[in-house]
Design a protein around this nucleic acid. Structure first.
Lengths: 220, 220
DNA sequence: CGGTTTAGTAAGTAAATGTTTACTTTTTGA
DNA sequence: TCAAAAAGTAAACATTTACTTACTAAACCG
């Protein structure tokens, strides 16, 4: 049952089982809070194998982090923004990010933890530095096109916009627990997220659009 | 030199030294990563005193968290938004939050860590639940006034707006390390933050203002 | 086959870590 | 003044924790 047709080893390799178990553990407790013992128990193996395959706790953590980040990059590549009209393309990017973080809270938690650790693991990675986001260039292209066509507010910096978009799509997920506790509501509910999404979409649209007639002063 | 005029005890009480040392430690490493040994060494005392004054590591952590949060609430009370014109008042709130998180990254890190721990400590607190933000009501008042006067977009939810504001003012600080690493820039520099602040201010303003003539469709 | 490499197991180790015990010193208040 | 309470010290305790050693089984390949 647990064996391959040609071998007596389990179908899923020990390395993969460790990776999956570690993913769960690091997502649930962060690096410092993660326990080797729980990982090996869930992966049905023993500590020795972690050191055999990954070199140690840090190596395992890095493998998990790299895997999750490359997952985001791969999905980003699959979506085509650049062939849309500028504003529609940027809103499509917003929708994509919102959907991705909503569906992949694991990545959000890993990133959150990595900031607690001041990105010390990420800095060690040989891989992460090289997979720079392809989205930044696409944002630049769309902003340029829209600016020249006169429909997009001039002077927007692609990286600043990207950080704003990620903030607006990620913050309420990474801070879900404290926000829900402090304000005594369930911020993770579908209704709340839908409401938040619509409001945020409107905010971004209002910002991008070029009010070629700038309001001299606020009315009140 | 280290004694009070009437006693041979240190000027600053052991309890306060522990609290200060623990604050630094929890900010630097989070709850799971914090070490009792480092705290007592910095506070120039011994483990026994932590259990004497705070009951244990968890109690100490909670004391630090409660202190930081009540600091934010106190400062929020000092700023008067409600007597400003609606849009000016909301922008003043944005400026306040932006400045507060910029100046108090400690609080941001404690909150980040608390989310890693799924707010389990915060939920135990008898204090935090009771000090609900006074800002929410003030936002509601401003939105109402502005909406009735016709200068503010109708239908904005106060809590959604507050979460958006905090997202835009806190995210780039809490995620400073991963963002800086991935995009190979120093996101904590004054220049970058100023640029980000201006862009974000414009975004919020554009969102709040009531475009009484809504664009039928984006121009492009 | 047969020898080498890779994958895996069981048990253990040394160090770290939160916590407590036993005891001393200082402060306080009747 | 003096006993009781509060504040503080030193040392150790019981686990936990990341990691290793010694050994076995399976896979690979000429």
């Amino acid at each position: 049952m647990t064996t391959d047709k040609t071998s007596s080893r389990p179908k899923v390799s020990t390395e993969e089982r460790i990776r999956a178990a570690a993913h769960q553990e690091f997502v649930a407790h962060g690096f410092a809070g993660a326990r080797i013992e729980r990982i090996v128990k869930r992966a049905k193996t023993n500590p020795r194998m972690i050191y055999h395959h990954f070199g140690g706790k840090s190596g395992l953590y890095l493998a998990v982090l790299e895997g999750s980040l490359s997952g985001l990059r791969e999905r980003e590549m699959l979506v085509d923004f650049a062939h849309e009209p500028p504003i529609a393309g940027l809103l499509k990017l917003f929708d994509f990010l919102n959907e991705h973080f909503r569906r992949t809270p694991d990545l959000v938690r890993l990133l959150t933890n990595e900031n607690i650790e001041r990105a010390r693991h990420m800095k060690e990675s040989q891989v992460i530095g090289k997979m720079s986001s392809p989205v930044l260039e696409q944002i630049g292209v769309l902003l340029n096109r829209g600016e020249k066509a006169g429909c997009i507010r001039p002077g927007i910096d692609p990286l600043v916009l990207y950080v704003q978009l990620v903030a607006l799509t990620q913050f309420h997920i990474s801070n879900m627990h404290t926000l829900s506790t402090i304000f005594a509501i369930d911020i993770s509910s579908e209704e709340w997220r839908d409401k938040h999404k619509e409001a945020t979409r409107a905010m971004i649209l209002a910002y991008l659009e070029n009010d070629s007639a700038p309001s001299n002063e606020h009315l009140c």
